[in-house]
Design a protein around this nucleic acid. Sequence first.
DNA 1: GCCTGGCAGTCGGTACAATCGAGTGCTAAT
DNA 2: ATTAGCACTCGATTGTACCGACTGCCAGGC
Lengths: 336, 336
Amino acid sequence: MDSELDDRKAAILRAVVEQYIETAQPVGSQNVADRTEVSVSSATVRNEMVALEKDGFLAQPHTSAGRVPTDKGYRFFVDQLVRPGPLGPAERQKVREFFARAHGELEQMLQDTSRLLSGLTSYAAVVVGPPAETATIRSVQVVGLGARVAMVVAVLSNGAVVKHTIELDDSVGEEHLGAVTAHLAPHVVGRSLVDLADVPPSGNAVLDTVTNQATGALRVTAREEPDHVFVGGAARMAAAFDAVETVRSVLDTLEQQYVVVSLLRDVLDRGLSVAIGHEHGLEPLSECAVVVAPYGGEGGSRGSIGVLGPTRMNYPQALAAVAVVSQRLGHRLEEG
Amino acid sequence: MDSELDDRKAAILRAVVEQYIETAQPVGSQNVADRTEVSVSSATVRNEMVALEKDGFLAQPHTSAGRVPTDKGYRFFVDQLVRPGPLGPAERQKVREFFARAHGELEQMLQDTSRLLSGLTSYAAVVVGPPAETATIRSVQVVGLGARVAMVVAVLSNGAVVKHTIELDDSVGEEHLGAVTAHLAPHVVGRSLVDLADVPPSGNAVLDTVTNQATGALRVTAREEPDHVFVGGAARMAAAFDAVETVRSVLDTLEQQYVVVSLLRDVLDRGLSVAIGHEHGLEPLSECAVVVAPYGGEGGSRGSIGVLGPTRMNYPQALAAVAVVSQRLGHRLEEG
DNA sequence: GCCTGGCAGTCGGTACAATCGAGTGCTAAT
DNA sequence: ATTAGCACTCGATTGTACCGACTGCCAGGC
């Protein structure tokens, strides 16, 4: 394809993208020519611009307006023209402070992280918790709640807790549940939720029934427990767009957590760290770009974080923020 | 005060409010006079309107425009002019179906309930989970996670699970934790998180230290565990306002969960079920109204639900939806 | 052959005036 | 006390003119 551009075209494209990101206004040839990096006249810039437009990197909202980058233009920009970009000192400081006093529970920390990331970039941020598969069960317990209902609770090695209620037969009394716990625990502790073996029968029918219910419940949590998603700074999307209808549809999508999760997963699976406009298939987000990164090392539990903003987002900044936060978060989770 | 209005004034006020709720346009005297309920001329309506405006029930955006209800006008409307209002058959059906197949975990169900309520009203909905105080501990366990970190997990009678990590001394081994659990459990099971007694010392220094850490951790969860809040349909706020800045500030407030919780609590404490505009102190929500109801009976765990919309919300519908859902949800939670 | 200055042309945005019309307040008549 | 009528207000709409920021193209210059 034509994804090669000579130096001058590249410089012009860069100028347009940077300018447009900054001002949100179509940028004209004069404007570009004034930049020191481009030392040709506006007429020459215009000529190059028609070429860039023909190749699909730029577009014109209407005749006699400046040019605006297309998705393809942004793509070239992030792929070829942009280094990760440094984080400002103020932001560095924020990150440092955050991780210095980051404390406590996994979920709370992930939620706070999404707020941090949103604050750093002033876009919406998403943090997907580590999937249950990667953690092993440290402890399991069956607890009676009411007359005929009990709850299976398992503590995982990454500090998450999963639970699921089970319906009991009338014949099961509180006293059986302790036995079930005792019988069940040795066979599941140390394993992951996804590779639970069947527990060998004990001979006692009641006990075995409940035990099977419990392992079944655990398997269910592994399968249908939605990956925990934490969205921070959704309100900032309102500031990023001025069409209220766009805001609505973006927020609407953001509320469907599984959509967000699979979006991030898709992007990562395709080996990308940025998806722009229509590149991800989600129509309601076609005016958005996402910057994604996995966190968590090989050993520990892996998850992903992302920033969602308008296609004209500040890519260098977003890339830097996502990179730093994912790295620090990964470290943090590994040390427990 | 002047909170008494003769029948005609009341009828006119009602007409203005209903019309404005429907069209979002200032409503004029002619428009009101055309209504069958008001059988006087537009001139008379005008005369009454100046009175209503002087008394603060109506306002004029500018001269030569129609009238718009003030917060006080809405207040009179909901207090005097509106019966709870029936739920449409389609909505009834939605509610019925929802509770018919409502299943599983507490948190999931509350989240889904917020979606339901939002769907019924097409405003944003908030569900605040039952506070930890009302539930008693059914089971407690201390589980080692890493080298020097353990987790205290307690299962509550309402099906909630609270957890908190504690830092261990080097000298504490995995084998101690079982002993701590055994020593701790009898003294806390059956009690509420808020009235934990100190556990009498066992004589073993290490064991007692960890036990105290564990009870401390439990107390912390009771105190600082934020009430769980579930917001549904926040995106619908975008459709309710056309000023993007309003949308932003409302969403921003909605993200600060503790603000939302205390808003609902405040309203209920004042014995209200509706708070309009400036009646609740939150400036960013001054263009919003909330309709609130507690759920959960005397015995069971209590929480609250609410609908957040523009001041010109459809009060009859919102009141009906909130009433029905809170009642059904309460029943549902009592039966477990 | 590539750049560039110059120029005609396009088109959105703004400023201004005229007009329209919904709605008001007031008054006089019933 | 009610109402018909009327003068008046003022936002919204329309039309016009104009400005200015662009573009595309062409002809002349390096």
